[in-house]
Nucleic acid binder design. Structure first.
Lengths: 173, 173
DNA sequence: TCCTGATTAGTCATTATTGACTATTCAGAA
DNA sequence: TTCTGAATAGTCAATAATGACTAATCAGGA
């Protein structure tokens, strides 16, 4: 239901068509979700069937018509409910990167150290990118919170990875 | 491919049947992955088709026969490759919990604070559970690393959430 | 003994997700 | 003006994932 929350939240600000929503999400919100285009259209269609949004065919010049989505008052109520649910819950994070760690004793620790140092370089690079001055879309309210969250998370990852590398170096796993 | 890595890694230790693999993953590795039963069987079947594992029908008493999976030498090579890939990469974490934060200005900050305090209590509880003495399955090598990772991550989450709550309290979003 | 609920083991029909494709428009170069 | 590559807008067939189901066995109590 978090994808629904996201789409409704964006539609509250302004009416948008599917492609526009997808573009925004994949440009400005890539760090918190990952909705592919057909998935976005699928969710929009279902929300239209549920009456949370309305589809309005719009003709722009002589381009083929496109469907503009508008949140309904029922959709607004659902948004308010989903938002409250989201804020008061916590979903355990699953790190797919961890799976390899479970089997780290299957390779020589010198090699493991080299591989993890490579991972660390990637992490550091992402951290640096995140600390670069950011776009307009990211400078308002909630977005800043989310960016700060990513920053904190990446810092914790780097600290942890350094710790793992140190322990491997001391053969103290 | 990380699910494949996980299943192959477990089969390296001993031959297992599908249900056994699924049970182990959902009991002892729930904090790093989330493979449903039919998904596990599906992956095992595909790995059998690829020659990474062999299926052997086994009769236990007069129970219906079941398929025991055994890693092949080709499977071992794939495991070694996947493990190295996994260790040297980093996958950006996506926090679905963040989506609500993006729209936090849609509700009064007093209410948001209450909701986030509830979230914090859940987080704290998970942190406490994680710090309780853990099972045998979790006390060996790689597993300890992963638990430590979760612990660090949860600590960072709590710190961040406290920061958000403080900022909201000061109306400084 | 018989019954009940839990455990073991797996399947299958339905949903969800996505890679790959179509088709139009537009901006600029040749 | 004609061509080319990028941007816009969306669809669809194929794959992946899962909820709900089946079915046997077992442990223990009535």
């Amino acid at each position: 239901m978090n994808r629904e929350l996201l789409l409704l939240g964006l539609l509250r600000h302004k009416d948008m068509h599917g492609y526009e929503l997808h573009e925004f999400i994949n440009r400005d919100m890539a760090f918190c979700t990952d909705i592919k285009k057909p998935t976005a259209y699928n969710i929009l269609q279902k929300m239209a069937e549920s009456g949370w949004v309305t589809e309005i065919e719009e003709q722009d010049g002589n381009r083929p018509p496109r469907k503009v989505y508008q949140i309904t008052s029922e959709g607004e109520q659902v948004f308010q409910k989903l938002l409250r649910e989201n804020l008061q819950q916590h979903h355990q994070a699953r790190f797919t990167d961890d799976i390899g760690l479970a089997f780290i004793d299957a390779i020589p620790s010198e090699e493991a150290i080299l591989l993890l140092k490579k991972r660390r370089a990637i992490l550091q690079h992402e951290f640096d990118v995140l600390n670069r001055p950011h776009s307009k879309a990211h400078s308002r309210g909630g977005m800043k919170l989310i960016l700060e969250h990513q920053r904190r998370h990446l810092q914790a990852e780097i600290d942890w990875l350094d710790d793992v590398i140190t322990r491997l170096t001391k053969e103290d796993i």
